[in-house]
C-alpha cells in the first residue's frame, strides 16, 4: 500500500518535510517498500492517513535510497516509525524501553491513531516525551 503514501526521495526532502510542517505531526516510516513488515505498516498508515490528516502528515522513506539517517536514527530494523513536530523529534514511552521510535510494524489502526493523537496533544503542549496510551512491552519484548 506504499503507493498511497508520499515518498521522500532524499535527505533534503526529509529535512524540508520535517522543517516546513507547521502545525501537524510528521510521521515518517523508514524501511523498504518491499519488506513484508513495512507492507503491513504501510497498509495501516495509508488507511488512517485521511482520518488523522488534521493532526498528522505521513511520509515514507526508503532507507537504501536515503541512507543519511541510518546512523543518526539507528535505522537498523525492517520497519521504523518516527514522529516529529516543528522540527523536534517527539519521543513516546511505549513501555518497550526504546522511547525514540516504533521499531516494529504496529498493525492496529486504532492503536496507531491513538498514538498519533497522543503525540499531537503532547507535542502541542511542548512535551518532548509522551506516554503511549497502551503498553506494548509484553507483546514485543527483546
Amino acid at each position: 500500500m506504499s503507493y498511497l503514501l508520499t515518498h521522500l526521495p532524499n535527505g533534503w526532502a526529509v529535512d524540508q518535510a520535517i522543517v516546513t510542517e507547521e502545525d501537524r505531526v510528521v510521521v515518517i516510516r523508514f524501511g523498504h517498500d518491499y519488506d513484508p513488515d513495512c507492507m503491513r505498516q504501510d497498509e495501516v498508515l495509508a488507511s488512517i492517513a485521511e482520518k488523522v490528516k488534521n493532526m498528522a502528515v505521513i511520509y515514507v522513506v526508503d532507507i537504501t535510497d536515503v541512507p543519511d539517517f541510518n546512523k543518526m536514527y539507528e535505522l537498523y530494523d525492517n520497519c521504523t516509525t518516527m514522529f516529529f513536530y516543528r522540527n523536534k523529534h517527539i519521543m513516546i514511552d511505549l513501555g518497550t524501553g526504546n522511547n525514540n521510535k516504533i521499531n516494529w510494524p504496529l498493525t492496529s489502526k486504532q492503536d496507531m491513531i491513538d498514538i498519533i493523537e497522543t503525540v499531537y496533544r503532547g507535542a502541542r503542549k511542548g512535551k518532548g516525551l509522551v506516554n503511549s496510551p497502551r503498553d506494548f512491552s509484553t507483546k514485543y519484548k527483546y
Binding site: N10, G11, W12, D15, V19, D68, E74
Partner: peptide
C-alpha cells in the same frame, strides 16, 4: 548534508 540543515540530533541506544 542530510539532517544537518535542520540541526537534527541523533540518539545512541
Amino acid at each position: 548534508i542530510a539532517g544537518f540543515g535542520r540541526g537534527a540530533v541523533g540518539f545512541t541506544t
